[in-house]
Write a protein that binds this DNA or RNA. Structure first.
Lengths: 237, 237
DNA sequence: CCAAACTGTGTCCATCGGAAGCAATTCTAT
DNA sequence: ATAGAATTGCTTCCGATGGACACAGTTTGG
């Protein structure tokens, strides 16, 4: 796996050549075209051919800008996540982390393919690193060690990813094939062998509102609050 | 997206035909062959051609057993995760959930491609459902609602997935390209723009042992302990 | 002014997932 | 026992994909 290609591309460490025809495309334009395709039809619909066609160019011209498809997808993913919002500040670090996590969700919901594109070891891009920086900055000055701070970040981001994954629909537009719906379908006729799952599903369907994201964040942040001296409710009601 | 194919295959609802030549292969054998390839060379190396070749058959013969590649991958993933261990029991539900989460990790570490294979909406297989059942059974009888019980499960499993993802190495055997190593490489020359990340990484590298999994679990389970009346240490010390 | 450098394109290739049809094999019904 | 039906594994074929390579046209520096 060659990571220098992704690294140079994502971080834009390219000396600008001066001779020859002026480039008609930019990394940004190419990536945005790919994002549009992935948003509408899923990551599988993103091919070099397709991206080039949507831009009005031939497939091979893209290779003048991007070393390969995986690097293009990495570029798309980093661009799609955008930059983190400004830290609201304040004394309650947990509240700030909560805001950070809540801000992370829309990107995953609007671009569900980013979940696919960012599984496994990869080169971290500028935007992803900026998100990490924002969360770690909040954790600066707590008694937590470096590894622990990274862990808090991983747990929070992981939870947001999970929620986004459950909410993700099939790109084709099959709104009925959400993860929960599929699960319910599977359990319907086999519930006897999985009574706890059956009960939880039935109760959840009856209960109404889905507060998965907030509930999980409260769970994690309550645990965190106990480890750092921070204002906020000590009694979780 | 046709889910009936995956559904029937994963759950083995196939009436056994009696006429014709006896099948030379089984779902189990095919899936295990695919797993061996994915373990050694990554999920990308798993093609119908390759699986068939390793079995000594032609590519198209596999389609007599499996409707398509995605269904094969789903079968591989469910088989690779195996069945959950027996619940140790006891009064401390959090300890039981901790054991459950710890038992979940080895499967992801041994088969990193399962993370890729199980992103996005999918048909849940028997083994995955058994893992869900095991965790939800522990949460039975707590005051938590159905949706909340599912959320606890999602948070725990999500954290384990995240840890496994960070520990995953490139399939090709590039042991140096773990996620943390790549991250460190990126930050090395750009640390000034990301001071919090730089500090956390430096401190983590110096600190030594990596307790990411346990730390995150403690975080989550402490938050959970506050919501269910359960024995266990109240002071996280 | 010319050679070097760069861009976009056309051609070519191996590989992939999968459809369709064919021959051989085995079971069921007579 | 035997004919027909069902099933298997194989061969052939197809469109699409990612990517290598060479080529012609364009721009710029010496």
């Amino acid at each position: 796996m060659d990571l220098t290609g992704s690294l140079d591309l994502l971080w834009g460490d390219r000396p600008g050549p001066r001779r020859g025809p002026k480039p008609a495309l930019t990394h940004d334009l190419i990536a945005r075209t790919g994002i549009a395709i992935a948003d509408a039809e899923g990551l599988a619909a993103v091919s070099m051919q397709r991206v080039a066609a949507d831009l009005g160019f031939t497939k091979m011209s893209l290779y003048r800008y991007v070393p390969g498809k995986s690097e293009l997808v990495a570029l798309m993913a980093d661009l799609a996540m955008g930059t983190p919002p400004a830290d609201p500040g304040g004394d309650d670090r947990c509240a700030r982390l909560r805001a950070w996590a809540l801000a992370l969700l829309p990107g995953f919901v609007r671009h569900p393919w980013v979940l696919e594109a960012t599984t496994g070891p990869r080169v971290v891009g500028p935007n992803e690193l900026a998100w990490m920086e924002a969360a770690l900055a909040v954790l600066d000055g707590t008694g937590l060690g470096g590894a622990a701070r990274m862990d808090v970040l991983a747990v929070l981001a992981g939870h947001v990813r999970n929620i986004a994954q459950q909410a993700a629909t099939t790109p084709g537009g099959d709104t009925g094939t959400q993860f929960g719906a599929i699960l319910a379908e599977v359990v319907r006729e086999r519930g006897d062998r999985f009574p706890a799952v059956k009960a939880a599903l039935a109760e959840a369907a009856e209960g109404g509102e889905d507060e998965a994201l907030g509930f999980g964040l409260d769970l994690i942040l309550d645990g965190l609050r106990a480890r750092i001296g921070d204002p906020g409710r000590a009694d979780p009601a």
